Computed example of a mutant assay.
Amino acid sequence: MTYSIRSGVGSRQAWQPIVAFVCTALMAGAVMVQAADPDPLQDFCVADLSPSGPRVNGLPCKDRANVTSKDFLFTDFRTSGNVSAKGTNAYPSFATVFEYPALNTLGISHVRLDFGIGGVVPPHTHPFSSETLFVVQGSIYTGFVSFDGVLYAETLQKGDIYIYPKGTLHFQINVGTGPAITFNSLNSQYPGFLVAANQLLLSNIPAAVLESSLGISNATDLNLLEASVPPNW
């Protein structure tokens, strides 16, 4: 069967509403794809983290009558993290909605990274946000791998900023001669934190899958790899 569209003013007029609808739908789709957390519907919604709070896609609001100025203050970044605790001589201190409930619905969170000499934050992703890194102290080599497998990396000094696009694998290492500190911001109240080695080697993926994927010929090599992953990330 052959289909045809007749030319003429009448047919063009008939198609105009359809074309307008398609264009609008495509534009709306593009906005949704690029968005991070949705815009809030009120000025603030301090999260209710109590176990009895209702479970929703996000977190419920604390009763506004019980909110004080202290709810908007976060002081945990005043002290450095214990860099020996993670096994790579670096430590992330998080300010997500779960540590800082006032961030609820506001589409932002922060991380303080403390590095000893040679300290490493291993390759990881944030599935829900992009991220910027600001060097407060020291010298950091950092970068991300794009979706087409290209590494973009630079050595940063105090005062420099670097960005990691949403969902890309990225890392940080202290390449200076002393301790280093960075302050990172993310455009999600809970960006997620997926460490590549943990996801791959410590998540009970069948050994046959890993051996074939990594080109490992025996279980002994795989066991050595699994045992070498820092346990606390």
Rank of each mutant, 00 (worst) to 15 (best):
S4R: 14
G10P: 00
S11A: 15
R12Q: 10
A14T: 12
W15L: 15
W15P: 01
Q16M: 13
P17Q: 05
I18L: 13
A20V: 08
V22Y: 10
A25P: 05
A30E: 13
M32Q: 12
Q34E: 10
Q34V: 02
A35Y: 02
D37L: 00
Q42H: 03
F44N: 11
F44G: 04
V46P: 09
A47W: 01
L49S: 07
P51Q: 04
P54A: 00
V56C: 01
V56Y: 03
N57T: 04
N57K: 11
L59H: 06
L59N: 03
P60C: 00
D63M: 00
R64K: 14
A65I: 00
A65L: 05
N66V: 00
V67K: 02
V67W: 02
K70M: 04
L73D: 03
T75M: 09
D76S: 13
S80C: 06
S80R: 14
G81K: 09
N82K: 14
N82L: 09
N82Y: 04
A85N: 11
K86S: 12
K86Q: 12
G87M: 06
A90T: 08
Y91N: 14
P101N: 02
N104W: 01
T105R: 06
S109F: 02
L113T: 08
F115W: 06
F115L: 07
F115A: 06
G116C: 05
I117E: 12
I117P: 11
H124N: 09
S129V: 01
S130P: 06
E131H: 06
V135F: 06
V135W: 04
V136Y: 11
V136K: 09
Q137M: 08
G138E: 02
G138I: 01
I140G: 05
Y141E: 09
Y141L: 07
T142P: 07
T142N: 04
G143A: 03
F144R: 05
F147G: 12
G149I: 08
A153I: 03
A153E: 14
E154H: 12
Q157L: 13
I161S: 14
I163A: 15
K166V: 05
H170N: 11
I173D: 02
I173W: 03
V175A: 07
V175C: 08
N184S: 15
S185E: 04
S185D: 01
Q189V: 10
F193H: 08
V195P: 05
Q199D: 10
L201C: 10
L201W: 05
L202M: 13
S203Q: 13
N204E: 13
P206C: 07
P206E: 09
A207C: 04
A208M: 07
L210V: 09
S212I: 00
L214R: 11
G215C: 04
I216C: 09
N218C: 10
A219E: 15
L222D: 11
L224M: 12
V229F: 09
P230G: 09
